[in-house]
């Protein structure tokens, strides 16, 4: 019979390690640079491994790992303040970009010209609670209930943060597309 440590290793390899890419993607957006994301992921996985006995097999291992990641980030990494401008999500007028482009580009074709790095940069300029909500939803495809669990807020807060984050990001990408000439501003 295998020792308990081997059982744990096997279970951890089978259930937790396949989520390493997801944990890394979220870490990268939280930490803002690759070196810190590396450390953050390593620490998260080590903590998860050491507390594997607290994880109930068959429950949501992804949400469990991302919760550990988030706590680790808040407690140990956030002190190192991120640089860079922050997008204002305070005054979000719903669907403003759509109203601007609905005649010229109702299918949003201008988005296709915006490259990955530019999208990630724009995501990184969102305030933290909006950024994490958007990343968990739109990058990692967590449900609202899972995001609420990971971020420790009610589902209603997830909904409103997600709405504002998506709209603020869309406005930022639209402004960028205008600046780059991917789309022309409609004169009214």
């Amino acid at each position: 019979m295998a020792a308990p440590a081997d059982n744990r290793r096997e279970a951890f390899e089978r259930e937790a390690l396949p989520l390493l890419d997801a944990v890394y993607r979220v870490a990268l957006r939280l930490a803002g640079d690759e070196a810190q994301a590396d450390d953050l992921v390593q620490e998260t996985m080590l903590k998860a491994y050491r507390s594997w006995h607290q994880y109930k097999s068959g429950t949501n291992v992804r949400a469990w790992l991302l919760t550990i990641l988030r706590h680790t980030f808040i407690n140990e990494y956030r002190k190192k303040k991120r640089a860079g401008p922050t997008v204002d999500v305070g005054e979000i007028e719903g669907y403003h970009v759509f109203h601007e482009v609905q005649e010229a580009d109702p299918e949003g074709n201008f988005f296709d010209q915006i490259v990955d790095d530019e999208v990630l940069r724009a995501i990184d300029s969102l305030p933290e609670e909006f950024r994490e909500t958007l990343v968990l939803s739109d990058v990692e495809q967590l449900t609202y209930a899972e995001i609420a669990e990971v971020t420790g807020v009610p589902v209603g807060t997830v909904k409103s943060r997600l709405f504002r984050a998506r709209q603020a990001l869309q406005q930022k990408l639209y402004d960028y597309a205008l600046e780059m000439g991917y789309i022309k501003r409609v004169e009214r």
Binding site: Y24, E107, D112, L120, Q170
Partner: peptide, 18 residues
């Protein structure tokens, strides 16, 4: 429009691997 936007976001952000 919003559906296209969300699909675009997914497509642009999921490529990163550890």
């Amino acid at each position: 429009f919003e559906d296209a936007y969300l699909s675009f976001l997914r497509a642009r952000t999921r490529a990163h691997q550890a």
